[in-house]
């Protein structure tokens, strides 16, 4: 399961909305081994494409060094799909190079509703996981809603049968 602070998730979604229709990308770093994403780092999409994203290689080196020095790791690697669902493409699976990271996908294909899904991608195998948002503040002026995809075994229905 991915546990993420609402403010960080909002910042990721805002980044994806800002760069739409190009794909947006970035990471959330956290202390090594903590599985806790604490530092949001939006990255430029060097490909500037609606169907592809790529970190600039020199910026990536700088960031990975910075994380190494701070004893951090990329807890989340995120990117957006701007016309398709928030599910890893074959390209995403092939390139997934961080076996310890949560791969967060954000789909901005619907202007009002943002799809958010999280995956582990290890050796080409994709496993979806639930997303738990913490510290959410109810905003009565919210103009968009989030749709979380979850694996069937972990869907938490609000209305249980018989209740």
């Amino acid at each position: 399961m991915l546990t993420i602070d609402a403010a960080i998730l909002d910042a990721i979604v805002a980044h994806a909305r800002r760069d739409h229709p190009d794909e947006a990308c970035g990471i959330v770093a956290g202390p090594a081994g903590s599985d806790s994403p604490t530092r949001h780092v939006p990255m430029a999409n060097a490909a500037r494409s609606m169907t592809f994203y790529e970190f600039d290689s020199v910026e990536q080196l700088r960031l990975w060094r910075e994380m190494d020095d701070a004893d951090e790791e990329p807890v989340i690697v995120y990117h957006s799909h701007t016309a398709t669902e928030a599910y890893p493409s074959r390209t995403d699976v092939s390139f997934a190079g961080e076996p310890n990271a949560h791969y967060l996908l954000v789909s901005t294909r619907d202007p009002e509703r943002t799809e958010i899904r999280s995956f582990r991608i290890v050796d080409g195998a994709v496993t979806e996981e639930p997303v738990q948002v913490v510290n959410a503040v109810v905003d009565s002026h919210a103009v968009q809603s989030y749709l979380f995809g979850q694996s069937p075994t972990t869907v938490d229905y609000e209305c249980r049968a018989g209740s």
């Binding site: 990308c25 494409s49 592809f52 970190f55 290689s57 990975w64 493409s89 390209t91 390139f95 190079g97």
Partner: peptide
């Protein structure tokens, strides 16, 4: 470092 890359468009070279 493995490049951080991907995207909606799948192509054979990726594999």
């Amino acid at each position: 470092l493995p490049a951080v890359a991907g995207g909606a468009f799948a192509f054979a070279a990726a594999h």
